[in-house]
Every structure is written in C-alpha cells, then in structure tokens.
Design a protein around this nucleic acid. Structure first.
Lengths: 232, 232
DNA sequence: GCTATGATTCGGTCCCTGACGAAGTATGGT
DNA sequence: ACCATACTTCGTCAGGGACCGAATCATAGC
C-alpha cells in the first residue's frame, strides 16, 4: 500500500548464497573478474554471469570490460555498509543460539513494557508501594497518596509536570509473565526513566531486558523496600 | 566456505516482500501483534504466522504471547541497522518510489525510533549538536566533545553510567522520512528518556508520535538551539 | 586468418518456497 | 457452558529462480 523503498528486492539479491559470496569477496575493494567471482560463489561461469547481470542491474556492482576480462566492483560504499551490517547480525545470531525470550531469567525479572518497568521487579515495586500506603487502589483505580507524592518528589520526579499530562498518572498493567499487575501510566514511565537516568539500571541493547546495577539494587531496597536480587 | 557468517540466509529472510514490510513496521520499536503484522505484510494470518516463525528462529524478531495476542518485536538494534542500511541503499539505487508525504505532520516532526528521538526534531537536534561543537564526527563515528559532556551532565544525564553500557554511546541513525541522520546510541536513548522524564515531551499512547510541551520547546530552543515549532 | 581463453546467451530441468483453504488450539468475554 | 477472536498447524498447489550443458560472442596472441 505504501511506496516505500524496495528493500526486499535488494535483500533478495543478497539472499542468494552465490551472490552473497561474490559480494563479500568484493567488500575488500578490489575489482574481480567474472571468472574469479564465479569461483568465489562456487558456481559455474554461466550462472555467475547471470548473477552479475542482476547485481549490476540493481546497482549493487559496477562492471567494466577490459580486454577479454570483465571486472566487477562494488557499486558503492553503501553496499559495503549493508554487507557489514548483515555480517555483524549473522555473527551475533549465529554464535549466540536463539533463545526465545520468555524463559530467560533476566528478562523475566526486569524488562521494559512499552515505557515502564515490568517483570518480577515491576510487580514487587507496585506491591511495595501499595503495602506502604504510598499508593492506594481507589475503586480499581490507582492513586498516589501524600506519602507517595513526597517519595516521588524526593527521588527527583516533577509531579506537577506529570499531572499536566493528558495521560493518566497511575495505571496498572497486567504482567504477561507473572500474571500480576505492575505500575504503568506516566508515573510508571517517569520512574523507569529516572531509574535509567540515575544509573540505577540500564537497558540491554538487544532486548527489552533491564539490568539493575548494584547501586540500583541497594536503592530499590532502601527506598522502596524491594529486594532486587531474589529470584521469583 | 560455510565457516563464514551466513549472511545469505539472513538476507534471504529479509528478501521477501511480506517479511520486509513486517520488519520495517517493527523498526519503530513498538511490538506489534501477529494480526497487525499480517496486515502490514499484505498476507493472510496463516502465512504471516509462518513468516514470523522463520524470523523468530533466525533471531530477527522476538515473540511473546500475552493473552490471546502474540506480540512480536525486533530482535535487536543490529536488525534495525540492517534495515536502515538496506533502506538507504534502496533509496540511492533508485529502486524506490519514496513519498515522504502522507505522513502525519506530528509524526513527521517528532517520533520514537526504537528508543530515541527521530523526525525533524531529532535531525535538527543532531545538526545543532554538531554545529555547536558538542559532538564531532570522527571518521564517520560520532564522539562527544568536552563541551558536549558538560552539556549532557547539566541536563542531568549520568554519562559514566552510559559509558559503562556495552552499547555504543553515540550512533547516527538514518531517518526514513527525512533521509538524514539523527542521534541514536545509548546517549540518544538517554536523551529521549530525559526529555520524557523532565516533562519536556510525552509519548502518545497509541502511536510513536512524541509531542513536546511548551516547556520542552523553550528548553530545546534555549539549551540546544533547536526551534521546535517551525516546520522544516 | 586461426586458435585459445574468457564471458555471455539460450534452453530445459528441478527444487525451493510462498501462497491460501481448512481445521485445530488457546484465550477472553458473556 | 457457550461463542467469538486470535493465532497456529497441516496439506496442497503453483510460480519463480538457480543451476548446468551446449552453443555463441568477443578478445588476445600467434
């Protein structure tokens, strides 16, 4: 429906083993002849010729004829960028076995749910806020008590700014792993942002996992009364 | 020959139109349900399920089931890098009928890209950081200057904590609407989180649109020298 | 001219993969 | 307990693309 750049067409070109081998051989920058590229790709000269014609038509390689040789080179630096990015991704997914998320303990303990903290820690945090009377459940709706407001202000949250948001301040969000609620809403988002900003926690680059630092663990325990190291 | 990273296998996965559309839809960072992805890919639910199973097996996406919905998200930042590189290449080689037009103007101005700020504002922010010497481009790689470090510390970012992350601090990310770079990396993510935490901006609940408050606009103008209200 | 070598074109075969229909499974709502 | 919704699995079909054998074209050297 949308006229987006046709990345599938290009990716499909790279998605053939013979062509991919040719392209990786060309990343070095040196122009190679059709015969050499056929050897690199592990195919006969005829099929290599067909492959190179397609690559050239798509602009991935440039060809020039010199004598009875046909030299091919990469079509540009951006092609090399694509190959490099693919190589990096292949290396990561190839070496670290595919571990589907839901059972990974770190992910289960603390992760990002949209923009707030979820997982065992998120559930424990909401529990503690309720148990200490900093948050109350008011007819199925969460509300911050005066005690909770001072607590949030103490750790540097600008509550008036959050209250101005059209988004509800407190919301409970059901956790998919624990089947219990954790804190969402603008307050939940601000809390996670604050945790990250204070260096108490950091997001893992590849996943939604949130790992807490030692400083963060002690802070959670002392300020919120949440034990961050216990499993389950 | 098989000892090398198998880039062809991954590229072949991206090389299908339906899968490519799904992946580009996921680059925004928000997890989508299998049904939504089926619509994005222009295929029925069954085929989409098969596609998603393959993508998950390869580590390109991660899936989690919540209730009767199956949410899928991008498998990692490196996947987004591959898609971005392919998009840029497709744009250059002219294999595109790119229309930046029909985007919602608010979405075009500021939106979330993975976990950092994109759109016109994101591009303007990176431009300003570079122009003011707070960020330098060091051989294609972005680096924070001492002036930039004091600036970031001034608005409350914990740079040592960010530096401890395995994720690169500064990275440029190609904007798919504007076709220019904005700031990514852990610094880009921290900046967006800080903007949200300070009440300078807020995420729209349903989309990836980011709306800046009046306070945020003046702050952007005074601190970063970015005019937040001008269109282009 | 002739020949050897490299590159391309043509024709045909075969396998792989994506597509959907239909049925099965799981969850939520009433 | 019932039905609706969302997703997945199974079976099958059709299209596309990669592959090679053989022939053709182009160039360099004699």
């Amino acid at each position: 429906m949308t006229d987006r750049p046709d990345i599938a067409r290009i990716a499909a070109l790279v998605g053939d083993a013979a062509r991919a081998n040719m392209l990786t051989a060309l990343v070095a920058g040196q122009a190679l002849t059709a015969g050499e590229l056929a050897r690199e790709g592990g195919v006969t000269a005829q099929t290599a010729s067909a492959h190179l014609a397609k690559l050239q038509a798509a602009g991935l390689v440039t060809g020039r004829k010199q004598g009875r040789h046909a030299y091919y080179a990469l079509g540009g630096a951006d092609v090399a960028v694509v190959i490099a990015a693919l190589t990096a991704l292949a290396a990561r997914t190839g070496h670290t076995r595919v571990r589907t998320g839901p059972l990974e303990p770190a992910l289960r303990q603390a992760r990002v749910c949209y923009d707030h903290l979820a997982g065992d820690l998120g559930v424990a945090l909401l529990d503690s806020l309720l148990a200490r009377g900093q948050l109350t459940e008011d007819g199925g709706r969460l509300r911050l008590t005066p005690a909770g407001e001072t607590l949030m202000a103490a750790i540097g949250l600008d509550l008036p700014a959050l209250a101005r948001s059209r988004r509800p301040l407190c919301k409970s969000c059901l956790d998919w792993s624990v089947r219990r609620s954790h804190l969402a809403g603008s307050l939940g988002a601000a809390l996670l942002a604050r945790f990250l900003g204070l260096g108490w926690a950091q997001r893992e680059p590849a996943s939604r996992t949130v790992t807490f630092t030692d400083k963060g663990r002690t802070a959670l325990r002392e300020i919120f009364g949440v034990a961050a190291d216990s499993a389950t």
